[in-house]
Amino acid sequence: MDIDAWVWWLIGAVALGIPLVVTAMPEFGMFAVGAVAAAVVAALGGGVVLQVLVFVILSVALIAVVRRIANRHRLQRPELATGVDALKGKQAVVLERVDSGGGRIKLAGEIWSARSLDGTQSYEVGQEVDVVEIDGATAVVI
């Protein structure tokens, strides 16, 4: 029994999909897509040289395009701040006197321990302060 070339290409695509799942390396996925394209060329009656050319050109093109897009996204900072980064720059209300030794504020609906950024400055109950950073579980305010 002779197996058609397109079946071999599909077997190759599945074989390339296994390391994609195991290693999470997207390059294997690009090669698998190239193998599927080569299987289509083989099923349509294309020669071995055309099948290999389609596999190589499509795989390399996908790797080049996807890598460029991935690098661009990796270098961009997220526009949406989350977690403690989202609290920086927010205003809070002093609940207990805040100085360099500590105090309490209400920040984003929660009660936080706080200390003043300037060791000589203190803030009284009811005063609004700005959060400049979060140091562990303590808000540093001015």
Rank of each mutant, 00 (worst) to 15 (best):
A13K: 11
D4S: 02
A13R: 03
E124H: 04
A37E: 08
I3K: 06
T138G: 07
L16S: 04
G136L: 04
D85I: 03
R67H: 07
I105Y: 09
G83P: 09
K88W: 08
G89F: 01
R97N: 13
G45P: 06
R104H: 03
P26Q: 15
G34R: 01
Q91L: 13
R115T: 02
V40C: 05
F28W: 07
F55M: 11
G29I: 09
I57C: 10
V41E: 01
M25D: 15
G89D: 07
A70T: 15
V93F: 01
L58Q: 00
V131F: 01
I69H: 12
I18T: 13
A38P: 12
N71Q: 12
L75T: 10
G34F: 01
G136N: 11
I142A: 11
I18A: 14
G109I: 12
V48H: 03
W8F: 14
V48E: 10
I18W: 09
A32F: 05
S100K: 15
V129M: 09
V21S: 15
V60G: 08
A42R: 08
A114T: 00
E110T: 13
L75M: 08
P19K: 04
A70N: 12
L58E: 11
I63F: 10
S113D: 15
A37L: 08
Y123Q: 02
E79N: 04
G102P: 00
D99K: 11
V140Q: 02
A24N: 14
E110Y: 04
G126S: 00
A81P: 14
I11A: 11
M30I: 00
D99T: 01
E124V: 09
E133I: 09
Q51L: 10
Q51C: 13
V129H: 11
V94L: 00
E96N: 07
K88G: 03
A42K: 07
I11K: 07
V56I: 08
A35T: 06
